[in-house]
Nucleic acid binder design. Structure first.
Length: 587
RNA sequence: GCGGCAGUAGCUCAGCUGGAUAGAGCAACGGCCUUCUAAGCCGUAGGUCGGGGGUUCGAGCCCCUCCUGCCGCGCCA
């Protein structure tokens, strides 16, 4: 059975509290890990907390608490320090017991039952399938994947979901863009609108369609342009011109649908399938898997949008104004009410999102985590409002915002503008710095903080690069263990009493911290804490490795050190796995 | 203008939800390779936690206010 010092110390302190302050059983006993090594392995501020109710000097209370502490063979010493902190130092036997614990649990070490099997849905990326994923999506992907792994490791039952926006205007624009390129290939050029999709991949899809179907979908350019509102004059950029441009684009879509008839859905379906496959493939290569790909269009096809809106109507949260149907989101704290159905009868994106969230609740998730780009934060009040208006428990819904990543090369920001279809894609980034560095760099900052992604650093094979620093520690341990040549399984039973050095005990303390880090990181939806922990653990090991030789002649000492190294390796593996980063045996 | 997020060492960032003398990594300076991977280690220096009030035994963290920066504020998605 593994030894948990925190629970153990809480038990001892609880006994002491019973003697010293029987009236104050409600005062929580906190066992903390001091920042400074000289403050012992664990500390409690109970005496400080009791100072007020007992109306006594905290240091005196601390003395009384210590006197009332049951004797323990696992404690090296108990001291009073500072204002009245009680510091505990464990015996080295108690500290080193973690090594056998790690080796016995292996890949499951650190796994927690904190989540108690709670059904959690994590929805992330959910990019429009209208083009390649760019570096902004990459951060959401890396964060969502690591967070999901972390929650799962912490005992939740996690479903990873990608919401496919396959119903909206953007998809129509992509289909139109592709068809326009296709017409160009057949010498029926139509002036290509600047607000259509201009990326090379669009022409690629047009070529595919031509190769498969020849001129089957060709129509004269004049026919297409016949009833379309004109594009604004070239060079104008005022609001009026912008609106004209959008009207022109919508006119082209309507005209194309008209001309192509049922062939429109072929083009639309083709580009959707292509882009979705590309997106999926990109994410799979990045080590990001989804359990469900949820189609927005299915919400319309099955009538879920209508029924969700009807439910809001019944609850009296809708009204009609200027021909449109509005949701009174201001009731729930939003700045203004929001349209759910336009005057032209079409539902807004918000309407299908309401239905989508209703569906999430209906699927029985006890916790729903939406991961959005930080630029969507203004969207939160209306979605939470809709959830409440539907009579659902808004506390189950959490929105985690992910800030943009800014790429730096040679100390300069690299342009990420989407105009002219030129943006840095996730695939390009992965190709340049590798999956490991990309996954790690994306999550090494708090997700709601801006991220400066230094491409040169991510590529560098030096100690500056935290990915290599951690992986190098792992590879070093592999190298030593393979030179020893024994079976790792045999190390589980190793007597770790020879481990008495300061660095060895510090390393044991670090290993013990892993479980705490998992629970804290899962609780705060903060996988970056894993990244920081791994850097610390790798640092502790490198330091130890440089100070002591592992393969010494003294057999018991050698085995104990190898067991410790093997335990460090295991925890590095477990942590890296959570982040989706490989743990190479050689570098 | 309103709302959201942020401001911590020269740079990039942590800071375990209010605890002890605020921590890392770069960059700077000085050391360590005939010995298990120097992609590493050891040491030195570096701070008015944006400013000012407040709350209490105790504040980088909580409240108020001001300054600065980023983002959002469509019958787009």
């Amino acid at each position: 059975m593994s030894f948990d010092p925190r629970t153990y110390l809480m038990g001892l302190m609880s006994t002491a509290r019973e003697t010293v302050a029987p009236e104050n059983r409600d005062t929580a006993i906190l066992i903390e890990r001091p920042k400074q090594a000289s403050h012992g392995d664990f500390s409690s501020n109970l005496a400080l907390q009791l100072a007020k109710p007992l109306k006594a000097n905290p240091r005196e209370i601390a003395i009384r608490l210590i006197d009332a502490l049951p004797p323990s063979a696992l404690l090296e010493k108990v001291e009073i320090a500072g204002a009245g902190f009680i510091n505990f130092t464990l015996t080295s036997v108690a500290k080193t017991s973690i090594v056998a614990d790690v080796l016995a649990k292996g890949a499951d070490f650190g796994r927690s039952s904190l989540g108690a099997g709670q059904k959690v849905q994590v929805e992330f990326v959910s990019a429009n399938p209208t083009g390649p994923l760019h570096v902004g999506h990459g951060r959401g992907a890396a964060y969502g994947a690591s967070l999901s792994a972390l929650l799962s490791f912490a005992g939740h039952s996690v479903t990873r979901e990608f919401y496919v926006n396959d119903a909206g205007r953007q998809m129509d624009i992509l289909a139109l863009s592709t068809w326009l390129r296709y017409l160009e290939l057949h010498a029926e050029p139509v002036p290509f609108p600047p607000n259509a999709y201009r990326g090379d991949y669009v022409m690629g899809m047009a070529v595919q369609i031509r190769d498969a179907h020849g001129d089957r979908y060709v129509h004269p350019a004049e026919a297409l342009l016949a009833c379309v509102p004109p594009a604004p004059e070239v060079g104008r950029a005022d609001d009026e011109a912008k609106r004209q441009q959008e009207d022109h684009l919508d006119g082209l879509i309507a005209s194309a649908k008209d001309l192509l008839g049922e062939h429109w859905s072929y083009v639309h379906g083709h580009v959707l399938t292509e882009q979705l496959a590309d997106c999926r493939n990109d994410l799979e290569e990045f080590g990001v898997h989804f359990d469900h790909w949820f189609s927005e269009r299915s919400l319309f096809d099955t009538g879920m949008v209508e029924s969700a809106i009807a439910r809001l109507e019944q609850a009296g949260h809708l009204y009609v104004q200027n021909g449109a149907t509005w949701f009174r989101s201001t009731t729930f704290g939003d700045e203004k009410d929001r349209v759910v159905q336009r005057d032209n009868g079409l539902y807004t994106y918000f309407a299908s999102d309401i239905a989508y969230h209703l569906n999430k609740y209906e699927r029985g998730f006890e916790r729903i985590i939406d991961i959005w780009g930080a630029d969507h934060h203004g969207y939160i009040p209306r979605v939470c409002g809709a959830v409440q208006a539907l009579g659902l428990d808004a506390k189950k819904l959490e929105v985690a915002l992910v800030q943009f990543a800014v790429l730096y090369r040679d100390g300069q920001k690299t342009s990420m503008s989407t105009r002219a279809g030129e943006f840095v894609t996730l695939r390009e980034l992965r190709g340049e710095v590798g999956n490991d560095a990309a996954r790690f760099f994306y999550v090494m900052r708090k997700s709601d903080q801006h991220l400066d992604f230094d491409l040169d650093l991510a590529k560098s094979q030096s100690n500056d690069n935290p990915v290599f620093y951690i992986q190098y520690a792992h590879a070093r341990i592999c190298s030593v263990l393979s030179q020893w040549g024994g079976a790792i399984a045999d190390l589980i039973a190793t007597d770790c009493q020879p481990l008495t050095g300061e660095r060895e005990l510090a390393l044991c303390g670090r290993l013990r911290e892993f479980a705490d880090v998992i629970e804290a990181a899962a609780g705060e939806l903060a996988p970056h804490q894993i990244a920081f922990f791994l850097k610390d653990l790798a640092g502790d090991f490198h330091s130890y490795y440089n100070a002591e030789r592992l393969l010494v002649d003294d057999q018991p000492l050698k085995l104990a050190r190898l067991a410790l190294a093997a335990a460090v390796r295991q925890v590095l593996q477990n942590g890296l796995w959570l982040l989706g980063v490989s743990a190479p045996e050689q570098m």
